[in-house]
Computed example of a mutant assay.
Amino acid sequence: MVSADPPPDCQACPRLVGLRHELREQFPDWFNAPVPSFGSTDPKLLVVGLAPGMRGANRTGRPFTGDYAGDLLYETMLDFGFATGTYQARPDDGLELHEAMITNAVRCLPPQNKPTGPEIKTCRPYLIATLEANPGLRAVLALGRIAHETFLSALDLRRADFTFGHGARHDLGTRDLVLFDSYHCSRYNTNTGRLTTDMFRSVFTDIRQFLDGA
């Protein structure tokens, strides 16, 4: 059985391993390793991002911690009751997730934050293992098209049957899971207006209403 998280020195993707070794030399005090999932022991919501950010999760070792995307994500999760504490952009800030878990489609930092197709496929068994390890999951939030597509592939579902779109909800017909879509909460998307705070909160409103009624 595949572990839900890659080993700390995973060698599966040569390009990502090479970047990891370069950064370990430049920044020896950074995490610089595959980033494990973060969350509660019995989550109902799984948030799936793309990959660790260089100065975010790759530096801190916790998904979405240390960059702008995390500021928006954790603030929203706190407001909707999926987290308690205070987010201070570091893994020892005491923040706790409730009924929620955060992971990434690719667990290692890719150059220019752009994983290749083979790298996404190579890392998919860890997403599958995460699903299998958390049978109480009822909702999945895909942050961006790649997260949406790799999640569908993890369930052996046809992508053509579930079109990505911000605010979309997909009843998957398997494992009693519902997939929710959002544009990624990256600084680029918010700076360009592709994603606003209200748009992001609207998706979480739908998720909360679904879970509360489930």
Results as ranks from 00 to 15, higher is better:
residue 157 L to S: 08
residue 65 T to H: 04
residue 72 L to I: 15
residue 127 L to M: 11
residue 172 L to V: 12
residue 82 F to P: 01
residue 211 L to P: 02
residue 148 H to R: 03
residue 22 E to P: 00
residue 123 C to W: 06
residue 16 L to Y: 08
residue 71 D to Y: 04
residue 47 V to S: 03
residue 196 T to G: 12
residue 166 H to F: 11
residue 149 E to Q: 14
residue 58 N to I: 10
residue 61 G to V: 09
residue 83 A to G: 05
residue 158 R to C: 13
residue 20 R to V: 02
residue 214 A to Q: 09
residue 78 L to V: 12
residue 98 H to L: 10
residue 63 P to Y: 03
residue 59 R to S: 09
residue 166 H to S: 09
residue 93 D to E: 10
residue 201 R to H: 12
residue 47 V to W: 00
residue 59 R to D: 03
residue 163 T to C: 08
residue 1 M to V: 13
residue 168 A to E: 08
residue 108 C to F: 04
residue 154 A to H: 04
residue 18 G to V: 07
residue 60 T to D: 05
residue 17 V to Q: 07
residue 122 T to H: 09
residue 146 I to T: 12
residue 130 T to K: 12
residue 182 S to H: 06
residue 205 T to V: 15
residue 176 D to N: 15
residue 177 L to N: 03
residue 110 P to M: 08
residue 69 A to M: 05
residue 2 V to D: 05
residue 179 L to W: 00
residue 73 L to T: 05
residue 143 L to P: 00
residue 28 P to R: 07
residue 173 G to S: 09
residue 177 L to R: 01
residue 11 Q to N: 13
residue 147 A to M: 04
residue 204 F to T: 03
residue 91 P to V: 08
residue 162 F to G: 00
residue 202 S to G: 15
residue 149 E to T: 14
residue 183 Y to S: 07
residue 42 D to G: 11
residue 71 D to E: 14
residue 163 T to H: 06
residue 148 H to A: 06
residue 78 L to K: 04
residue 139 A to Q: 02
residue 158 R to P: 11
residue 124 R to E: 10
residue 75 E to S: 15
residue 107 R to M: 10
residue 55 R to V: 13
residue 188 Y to A: 14
residue 142 A to F: 01
residue 201 R to N: 11
residue 49 G to N: 01
residue 151 F to L: 12
residue 59 R to Y: 04
residue 68 Y to T: 08
residue 153 S to L: 14
residue 198 D to L: 13
residue 184 H to I: 09
residue 88 Q to S: 13
residue 194 R to T: 15
residue 95 L to D: 03
residue 27 F to A: 10
residue 63 P to C: 09
residue 116 T to L: 12
residue 9 D to F: 06
residue 146 I to G: 00
residue 187 R to W: 12
residue 7 P to Y: 02
